[in-house]
């Protein structure tokens, strides 16, 4: 079914010239979008000597896999992987779970001045995190949560973006279904779990992924609220190397290797989930 819809949306006539043009433009777009990644990999495999050469080579003279070992040793990356994974997963679960409940409440449960409360929540999307840095640090300090997983999990969990997305999605659901479930005597918990959630699975996958990305990639907050290497996450590990560039040195080969440590797991995760995401949507969340 997915392909039939796709065929309708696109230009249906099978003109070989059009097909060639489509492939060519896609290829060009991918090369443009992929170039930085290519350069990241190439740079990470060069020797410092080759790196200093000019003009730069498009492919390393010899592939220096040892760079990855050097980069790995430059920060406690093993521990940082564990930390990133644990705090990323926990914060995502919390964030998505709370957002689901809240979005459902806003979409389907009566409450005085509901729209006002919704706007109050959505307005927080416009607050830059940098503004909350100091007050939240003070709060965590009072809770004695500095340098704990709590600090990396709980404060980022209250996020308006997933609430917004879920709310948008819930509003698109056919209200007849909800009414029917209500008529059957289902409570809100059951409706959310049995009716709304199954129909919103693709959006759930997407939001989960975006939330996880946000946690995985966050730099400033983990740097500020963790004091010890045992509590730190991967992006902070990259800072161990970036530091040297500020001093004037340029270990770009190591920096790119460390950057790949951060990027590769997320790319793998993404490749797996992406299929499910698109498939899920075609299976008919929006169509019902």
């Amino acid at each position: 079914m997915g392909s039939s819809v796709a065929a309708h949306v696109g230009h249906t006539r099978k003109n070989p010239l059009t097909t060639a043009a489509v492939y060519a433009s896609l290829l060009a777009a991918c090369m443009l979008l992929g170039l930085p990644f290519f350069w990241m990999v190439v740079t990470s495999l060069k020797s410092p000597h080759e790196l200093a050469g000019y003009p730069p080579s498009w492919w390393p003279e010899s592939l220096r896999w040892g760079n990855y070992i050097d980069a790995w040793r430059s920060a406690p990356f093993g521990r940082m992987y564990v930390n990133s994974l644990i705090t990323g997963l926990a914060a995502t679960a919390l964030q998505v779970g709370l957002a689901l409940l809240m979005a459902y409440a806003f979409a389907f449960i009566r409450f005085p001045a509901r729209r006002f409360w919704l706007l109050l929540v959505l307005a927080t999307m416009m607050i830059p995190d940098e503004m909350k840095l100091v007050p939240n640090y003070l709060t965590l300090s009072r809770l004695d949560w500095i340098n704990t997983y709590w600090a990396l999990i709980v404060p980022p969990a209250a996020h308006a973006f997933p609430v917004f997305v879920f709310y948008q999605q819930f509003r698109m659901l056919p209200s007849a279904l909800i009414d029917a479930a209500k008529a059957d005597g289902a409570g809100h918990g059951r409706i959310l779990w049995r009716v709304v959630l199954p129909m919103s699975r693709p959006v759930l996958v997407a939001v989960t992924l975006v939330s996880f990305l946000g946690r995985w990639n966050d730099f400033l907050w983990p740097l500020i609220v963790t004091d010890t290497a045992t509590m730190r996450t991967l992006p902070v590990g990259l800072a161990y190397l970036k530091k040297q560039a500020e001093e004037g040195a340029s270990p770009w080969h190591l920096m790119m290797a460390a950057a790949l440590f951060i990027v590769i797991p997320i790319v793998i995760l993404y490749s797996i989930l992406q299929k499910q995401f698109v498939e899920g949507i075609t299976k008919g969340a929006i169509k019902g």
Binding site: L89, G97, L98, Y149, G187, G189, R190
Partner: peptide, 25 residues
């Protein structure tokens, strides 16, 4: 029963909030 379910679900998530998913050192 439906209301009871709502309460239970609410509690589950409150619990999640209170214990933050998992504890660390």
């Amino acid at each position: 029963c439906a209301f009871g379910q709502d309460v239970a679900l609410g509690f589950c998530f409150s619990f999640l909030v209170a214990f933050g998913g998992c504890g660390g050192p």
